[in-house]
Design a protein around this nucleic acid. Structure first.
Lengths: 194, 194
DNA sequence: CTATTATATATCAATTCGATATAGTCAAAT
DNA sequence: ATTTGACTATATCGAATTGATATATAATAG
């Protein structure tokens, strides 16, 4: 799925600026399973405008750069729905420098191994909070695609959020149960060698 | 982490061809948490050769294209270990078209929703098998970085593989427990609307 | 008998990332 | 008192990466 399609999907929940779309992928509804950078979102919105799939209204702001608030056209909405029906989803891909590095735990000082595991856990703890669509700690201004017009949580979003949280919890549980064992084994190996 | 570093890491487990390195990321040891395509691996190996971090021996083969078997130089080994100590790991990123699409479950036919969930489950089932470093179903020729010179499973790899499997299992469990509930709710909503 | 899969390298256009520029507000730490 | 860093907001661009394609052959499956 290219960034253009992702932008259309982001706008299915209502109007938004390019900056807000990025936030949906950075912190918001889509944060744990899709990514898109500003450097790809802005050109995508420009292209979509040219193709008539979105329109924007420029809002002048005092003492601030202008805001362009984008919105789907009916053509854009149709295109997105058609894409949903026709696209074969690409393979999932998970990319983690930390896990890659941990693979080489034997070659690093034990403190680094422990620090990497702790950071991995901390990131997942944070993610678990961000995922929760019912979490009210989040700043109120944040756009959420998780609710429909009536303010009800959309079932698809609920399911996906629940899945994300289950993955986070499994990760955290595994670390709680296996971190010390790994560190002990690494220590034993080091002692053996010398 | 750029592809050059990933290649150095892949070669820490011993010599390999570019094709074999890709397999480590596609099917093998690193498959569930890193990716690299051939289009990036070959140029990376060329660059690493120029920089003196790897060397290769060309093996002529009958009726087959020549093989270039790459190997770390001591300089390459040192560089990789230094990188391990110095690199701040980038944020993890998980990318899933299926989860993105499922977010819009309300907008699609229920059969598609179900098919997407089933495919998601099937992929994770497969992944779970691929991850297991003790799985002996795998073709014997496949390079595995998971074992050291003595044929013992390396603790870092074990930990990372276990974590991957825990994530897969959590995913599969969540689907078993929540798939029907989602489908039922979607059906109820559709009935309500019409 | 044909299609697909696997081994193996290589190239390249299109896409995407990541960093940077611009520009102003606001809060917090020095 | 002021500088540093974080947040809102758009835009651009070089560099990295993907994904597709080309080349060549063997083996396996349908």
């Amino acid at each position: 799925m290219d960034v253009r399609t992702l932008c259309l999907g982001a706008l299915m929940g209502g109007e938004a600026t390019g900056y807000e779309i990025r936030k949906m992928f950075e912190d918001g509804t889509f944060s744990h399973f899709q990514i898109a950078s500003l450097g790809s979102i802005y050109p995508a919105l420009t292209k979509l405008t040219q193709d008539g799939l979105v329109t924007f209204v420029e809002h002048e702001q005092e003492n601030r750069p202008d805001k362009k608030i984008y919105q789907l056209t009916s053509e854009g909405r149709r295109t997105f729905l058609r894409t949903l029906l026709q696209t074969r989803p690409a393979e999932d891909r998970y990319r983690s420098d930390i896990l890659f590095m941990l693979t080489f735990a034997e070659e690093m000082p034990i403190e680094l191994t422990e620090a990497l595991i702790d950071e991995f856990a901390a990131r997942h703890e944070l993610m678990s909070q961000q995922i929760d669509p019912e979490n009210t700690d989040k700043p109120a201004h944040q756009k959420s695609n998780a609710r429909d017009e009536n303010g009800e949580l959309r079932p698809g979003c609920c399911f996906v959020a629940g899945l994300g949280q289950a993955m986070c919890n499994a990760t955290l549980k595994f670390i709680r149960e296996n971190k010390q064992g790994l560190l002990d084994e690494l220590k034993a190996r080091k002692a053996n060698k010398s």
